[in-house]
Design a protein around this nucleic acid. Structure first.
Lengths: 205, 205
DNA sequence: CCCTTTTGTGAGCGATGACTCGTAATGTAG
DNA sequence: CTACATTACGAGTCATCGCTCACAAAAGGG
């Protein structure tokens, strides 16, 4: 289902520029025209290269979207890591809140592109996204286990899954459109949700 | 983008059977072949009717999927209502837990179809699903406001959104595939998540 | 029985799309 | 300059798809 064999790698700088232009063009088509309007011909035209050049480096249409998703995923991850630097010294509850907010914020890097990748793209790309979520889940799992006695946890596996699932869903809901509530309030409530779940924040007032 | 005018309604029983066969065939193609393989010709063939007959009752391809989604949505809603009958007499925390479990269970009616509708289908169908979620959100909002003084709520709008978003995400996560955790445990944790968030269930042991 | 309405048919039109391949241009090494 | 590898090109192939339309068969009604 993944289509064909991998294609050759660019050797010269010229070729690397071409590949880059193609990936960027794919992203632009994705956000400007939508997933349904994505065609290899259109991408080639938008990139200013010929359709033949495109197929020298990408075996099929899906691999284009995959490349974009990969790049976007890495950008997000880098951003997240940067945002988490400052968390190290904080007390647990504040650290957690910062992490949650960072996780949500990071979904708003190029939100249109994120929306398309997350909601419109197909099998392979979705699998890639899902794999990213599983990675996050493992990280959360580790963090939970490490603080097992400070927290209120019955089943760390299930807890990690629920937490990641929840925060990701909220983050994505914020980039779909009107949400019937104020965004900042939603983020605040999400923090409360997770903190109370983990037994970290007793009710105030 | 929604295509064309609505088509005529079936007057005779014969025609109603045809329409039904078409909707059912659409659902079968959707779960057996996937959204990407859905074509009007294929649906017609699978339904055992001619392509012309299909276009007598459905203006375009999307309306097929929409009909399936509509039907599935109604089935789910009916199921949910039935499951909620028994909740009336229970104390608040148990009622809430039952409701959450019901909401999740109901996503497992024809899970394959649900998966396709929720994850693979496009604009119109997605809008329909989203509208359903908003309805749920309004219901939750009302329920929260009604019990405002028993619960721990700062912003009912945001709370309703977060809760619905969360439970729906968990429900959908359970029908995508391996989850890295036991399903029942996930459901239990989700209940805890929401109950603790609303200040209903203090920590046990 | 005939006339009208409703229902059913499927060949085929026009469009689009993914992808190939023969060829030409450009870089690169000796 | 020459020979070879790399890169770029884009017309064209083949398949599919959404959808129409001219027509035929069945139902209903008088």
């Amino acid at each position: 289902m993944a289509g064909h064999e991998p294609r050759k790698q660019p050797k010269q700088a010229r070729a690397r520029a071409t590949v880059d232009a193609i990936v960027q063009a794919t992203a632009r088509v994705l956000v400007e025209d939508g997933y349904d309007s994505l065609s290899t011909n259109r991408v080639a035209k938008r990139a200013g290269v010929s359709i033949g050049s495109l197929y020298q480096y990408f075996p099929d249409k899906e691999s284009l979207v995959l490349a974009v998703a990969e790049k976007h995923g890495e950008a997000i991850l880098a951003d997240l890591r940067a945002r988490l630097e400052s968390v190290a010294g904080l007390p647990l509850d504040q650290a957690l809140e910062s992490t949650i907010r960072a996780f949500i914020d990071v979904h708003l890097v190029d939100p249109e592109l994120h929306r398309v990748i997350h909601f419109d793209a197909h099998t392979l790309t979705r699998a890639r996204v899902r794999q990213g979520a599983l990675t996050a889940q493992r990280m959360v799992h580790a963090a939970l286990v490490e603080r097992q006695d400070t927290l209120l946890i019955r089943d760390a596996d299930a807890a990690a899954h629920v937490v990641v699932c929840t925060v990701e869903a909220v983050a994505n809901s914020l980039l779909v459109g009107p949400v019937g509530a104020d965004s900042e309030a939603v983020v605040r409530e999400t923090c409360d949700l997770v903190l109370r779940y983990l037994g970290l924040s007793a009710a105030e007032d």
